[in-house]
Design a protein around this nucleic acid. Structure first.
Lengths: 148, 148
DNA sequence: TCTAAATATAGACCGTGTCTAAATTGAGCT
DNA sequence: AGCTCAATTTAGACACGGTCTATATTTAGA
């Protein structure tokens, strides 16, 4: 049994989720492809090999995995939600020209930041969303922005 | 002519947007209701009185106004985009129990923050998204979270 | 093996947003 | 004012992302 699969098994057990073939395939895809995949991309990828999974199952499992903390839904400006198995905390950068979403490695806010502005709210997490031009778009001067 | 309407007129002129009745109604609604309204809410509000505006027009104008910087689209976890005429920069707080979105008054990141992590990207803007329990949910001990 | 609960499935359905083609309106010109 | 062209508005069809439903299957555990 590979390192990855035993890790996933353990993750399932810890989260009290039944390790079904479909659920396994979804999580495996996200663990192997540390990109911000849309539900549709995950659906397609899973259905290229057995086991197949219906669209509803993919969504069910993404929600279940997110609730269990094994995956997280990434904010995205566009319409399609994106998911990410990178559980190390990180910030995000959104390119306003080509809409790419990139991970920014984690750094903490100074502990006092926003203390007053946050009032009595109980903050359990935060992330910073940066916007601007990614390296590729910055270098291409075209008004249209770089295409991938 | 009211203070608000002359301000809006001036904003239109500055942005080189024709001050049509529909466009005016959309911007006026957002200026008067500093909430995070969805396009649907704006559509409904505008169509309660003259002038009417079709759905396409509401969307066209929201996009035009956003491009002109008079309005901004607020990230939201859910599906429906939300718009905001609060042009003062602010951060956001999302309650994980009741999904409320609240504005957090602006504070800057230390100028050096993330310098290394951001690499060569050209950052033009950023915001911090905090998550946790809002004051109401924090006080209600129920597992379900407070309802409004 | 048997049972109950969790999960998977196909496909209908719904909300949000975009597109199209035609009608209207606004701004500048004479 | 009348003319002209580009910007804007409109209704409704359409596309996409995601949810729901009813049924079938699988899993865990006794």
């Amino acid at each position: 049994m590979s390192k990855l699969s035993s890790e996933l098994d353990q993750a399932f057990r810890a989260a009290a989720l039944r390790p079904t073939a479909q659920r396994y395939a979804v999580l495996e895809f996200l663990a192997e492809h540390r990109v911000h995949a849309t539900a549709e991309e995950i659906f397609d990828a899973v259905n290229r090999n057995d086991p197949r999974a219906s669209r509803a199952t993919v969504y069910n499992n993404l929600r279940a995995l997110a609730k269990a903390g094994l995956v997280r839904e990434v904010m995205s400006e566009g319409k399609a939600a994106r998911f990410d198995a990178n559980l190390r905390r990180h910030h995000h950068f959104i390119c306003e020209r080509c809409s790419a979403v990139e991970d920014i490695s984690w750094f903490d806010l100074p502990p006092s930041a926003g203390r007053a502005a946050l009032g009595g709210r109980n903050v359990t997490n935060y992330e910073i969303v940066f916007r601007g031009s990614c390296v590729r778009c910055r270098d291409s001067k075209s008004k249209q922005g770089a295409k991938s």
